[in-house]
Structure formats: structure tokens, C-alpha cells
């Protein structure tokens, strides 16, 4: 479904991603793990068309999207849930959710999606008139995920959904990711909770200073020496 082929990405002339390649098949949950500054967010933003690769190619459903704009990527079904969540804080929950469906034309589909995310997160339904800014970190993350789902994404990219949450909420958010995956969503998950992310994943990639240094199934990587040493402290 998504094929990233030897991309290089630069910030102001400085390459931070070097020849990164990976792919995601339909229905998979792929995790990408790596330390702070490894380039995870940069890769997601490049897929979403916010940044563009200076070398290499990105294909989505067999079409080259390396030069696509963000709005084009969203229209194709690639949805990015940013690391900072970026809720529209002055707007209500429901307004936030409807903005998530901005790329959809079909009104019935929008209502259907709204029902779906309200079922997934009943608290959002209870508080649908409340302003996004009044929500706690965990709730905002749920809202960000729900808003992303409103677009009926074919590929959902989650950027550190558990960042800054207390342990109980980390588990809760990752449960949601698991559930979405089980429902058939195709997911690219970036995480720093390496163990959990690898346990969830069908396949995973380890990123270090802009390079993929390992790939394999979740279990394989959990057993790998590099991962054990660098991330699991074993």
C-alpha cells in the first residue's frame, strides 16, 4: 500500500533522513521506533506531503506521491495524527471532529464516522459541546485520534500517541491502537515505548540518526541485540 524507497529529507540543506526505505501492506500495523531526534516525525511529515524528499520516492497505492501536497495526501487517504496533537482548542469537540472529515464529500459518511468515533470514545460524545482546550492530555490524544479517524483514512499514521501521558493512560491509548488494528485499519505507529510498540506490531523498523538500522517482525526485533541494548535496557 505504501512504499518508501530510499528517501533523503533535508532541513535547510542539512540531510536528516538518509536513504530510508520501508513499506506497509494493507491491514498491517507497522511500528517505527527510535530515540529522540532519530527522524521519525520527519518521515511521517514527508509521507503526508508537509516535507518533500530530495532523493528517492514515495508510492501510495502504486502512485508516486513524493511531490504531493498535504491536502492531496489527505484526500488519498493518508492521515497524520501529530505528535503535539494540535487540537483546535477554541473549537468544540464536535467541530474538531467535523474538521477531521473536511476531505470527505459524502455527508452520510461523515455522520456515520461521527457515530463510529463516538462509539469508540463515549466520553467525546458526552462532552461534544465542550471546547477542545478544556481537555486533559489523555483526552486530547483520544480526540486527536478520533479526529484522524473522521477522514476514513486508508493509512493512519500516529506520531507518539502516548507521549507525555501517565502510565495508565499510555496503556489505554495503546489499547485503542490495538483495537483499531484489529478492526482492519492500516497503521503506522511511531513510539518511544519500544517494548509495547513492538509487541503490538506485525512488523517494525528501528530508526537511528535518520537510517533504518533494523527491520523485522515485532517478535524478531524484541529478541534482537540492538533493540535489547539500546531500548529495553537488558
Amino acid at each position: 500500500m505504501l512504499k518508501v524507497d530510499k528517501i533523503e529529507v533535508k532541513y535547510g540543506g542539512m540531510p536528516v533522513i538518509h536513504e530510508v526505505s520501508f513499506e506497509i501492506n494493507e491491514g498491517e500495523l507497522v511500528s517505527m521506533v527510535g530515540a529522540n531526534g532519530a527522524g521519525k516525525t520527519t518521515i511521517l511529515k514527508t509521507i503526508e506531503g508537509r516535507l518533500h524528499p530530495t532523493k528517492g520516492k514515495i508510492e501510495f497505492e502504486n502512485e508516486d506521491i513524493s511531490k504531493s501536497s498535504t491536502s492531496d495526501a489527505v484526500r488519498r487517504g493518508i492521515t497524520y495524527i501529530p505528535q503535539e496533537r494540535r487540537i483546535f482548542t477554541p473549537l468544540s469537540v464536535e467541530e474538531n471532529l467535523r474538521l477531521g472529515a473536511y476531505s470527505l464529500k459524502d455527508k452520510e459518511k461523515i455522520e456515520e464516522n461521527l457515530e463510529y468515533v463516538y462509539k469508540l470514545f463515549p466520553i467525546l460524545k458526552e462532552r461534544r459541546k465542550q471546547k477542545g482546550g478544556t481537555f486533559s492530555g489523555g483526552e486530547q490524544q483520544m480526540l486527536a485520534i478520533a479526529r484522524g479517524l473522521m477522514a476514513s483514512p486508508k493509512l493512519l499514521m500516529l506520531d507518539e500517541p502516548s507521549l507525555g501521558l501517565m502510565p495508565k493512560l499510555v496503556t489505554e491509548v495503546l489499547e485503542v491502537v490495538k483495537k483499531l488494528s484489529e478492526e482492519g485499519h492500516t497503521i503506522l505507529l511511531v513510539e518511544q515505548n519500544v517494548r509495547e510498540a513492538l509487541e503490538l506490531a506485525d512488523r517494525a523498523y528501528v530508526l537511528q540518526t535518520g537510517r533504518t538500522i533494523q527491520e523485522g517482525t515485532g517478535e524478531e526485533l524484541l529478541q534482537s541485540d540492538i533493540v535489547k541494548k539500546a531500548f529495553l535496557g537488558i
Binding site: 498535504t70 489527505v74 484526500r75 497524520y80 501529530p82 487540537i87 477531521g100 477522514a151
Partner: peptide, 23 residues
């Protein structure tokens, strides 16, 4: 209106608005 809401979203956070598919 939908366009108006998109304008509002852009005024609140243009980057987030772009992730909604707003031009």
C-alpha cells in the same frame, strides 16, 4: 459554512488545518 470553518481552523493552527486536508 464548511469553507468558513476551514478558514477558522487555519487561523487557529495552520499546520493542523493542513493535516485535515485544508488547502
Amino acid at each position: 459554512t464548511k469553507t468558513g470553518k476551514a478558514l477558522l481552523a487555519t487561523s487557529i493552527d495552520a499546520e493542523a488545518a493542513s493535516y485535515m486536508g485544508i488547502k
